[in-house]
Simulated assay, not measured.
Amino acid sequence: MRYVRMLTKTYKDNTGRSIDLYSLLIEHNGETSLLHPLHEYQLKNHVMSKSWHNKLIQAVELMLDYMDANRHYFSSPKAFFESFAESMHSGTIGEDGYDPSGLYWLPKRTTTAYNLLYSITQFSDWLAENALLKHQTTLTIDMRDMRLQQRESLPSGSTEVLAAKVEGLLPTEINALEHAVSEEFLSHQGWIPDTQGRVKMKGMLLYKAGYVTAIKKILSST
């Protein structure tokens, strides 16, 4: 997959004001297009500093390079991200000085690798949340009276989903969702999920009941 940085100008209204951001133009399967999820995420965070955007783009470029050099080597998004993170920290060159992938990455300083991986993680979280919101309209909630007693028995603040079918998720969206609720990611962030799907950190509620369970139901229906 080939890519190039390009300056984008986005007009959000009928004024002369524009949001000017460098983003990525990619070529894939003979087609060239803007990497829209990345650009949309950047627009949402356009007030962030130039260095923030540069770091994000650099992290995505590294991930695209690693993905292109290691096609068909990983059975799951989790395995891919773990190996990608390890390569960021340790480099890709063997003891004999050879790197079959052709990347020839040198080991990065711990802080540098962490900051780049953090940028990717935040982007992935946003993709997961965005995908969840995008597909919430496809959830079917049974509101018939015969279910009233069962609904009343649910814990306060929870939602009963009786039927849910999600279609058309892209591999990157599935990857983002799986990563968002993976034990490794939650543990790394210091977040603790409970049986009702809430996510907490040091007793503080980060995501309400149903967050983790809803994502897992979406994944199980794909």
Rank of each mutant, 00 (worst) to 15 (best):
M1H: 02
I19S: 05
K200E: 14
T92K: 00
L170N: 11
I120M: 09
E183S: 04
L132W: 03
G157T: 06
K50I: 11
Q196Y: 13
A85P: 05
L24C: 00
R151G: 09
L106R: 09
H188C: 07
I218T: 05
E173S: 02
Q122H: 11
L148F: 04
H135D: 12
E27L: 09
S156G: 09
Q149N: 15
T138D: 14
H72N: 14
L64S: 02
K9I: 06
F185V: 07
H89W: 05
L56Y: 04
D125Y: 05
L206H: 03
L133H: 15
P100T: 00
R144D: 06
S101Y: 03
L127R: 10
S221C: 10
Y11Q: 14
G30I: 00
S87K: 08
V4N: 00
A79P: 00
A209D: 15
D145M: 06
S221Q: 12
H36D: 15
T222M: 13
T222E: 14
K216L: 13
A180N: 03
E95G: 08
F74I: 02
F185L: 11
L34D: 04
P171K: 02
L162K: 07
L133F: 15
D142Q: 05
D68K: 10
I93D: 04
D20A: 13
E27Y: 03
Q136H: 11
D194G: 07
A69E: 06
S153T: 10
D145A: 10
D142G: 06
K216Y: 07
P155E: 06
S18I: 06
K78L: 11
E86W: 04
E183P: 02
D125K: 03
V161E: 02
Q136W: 08
E173C: 02
D99T: 05
K9C: 04
I174G: 00
K50A: 11
K134C: 12
Y11K: 15
N29I: 08
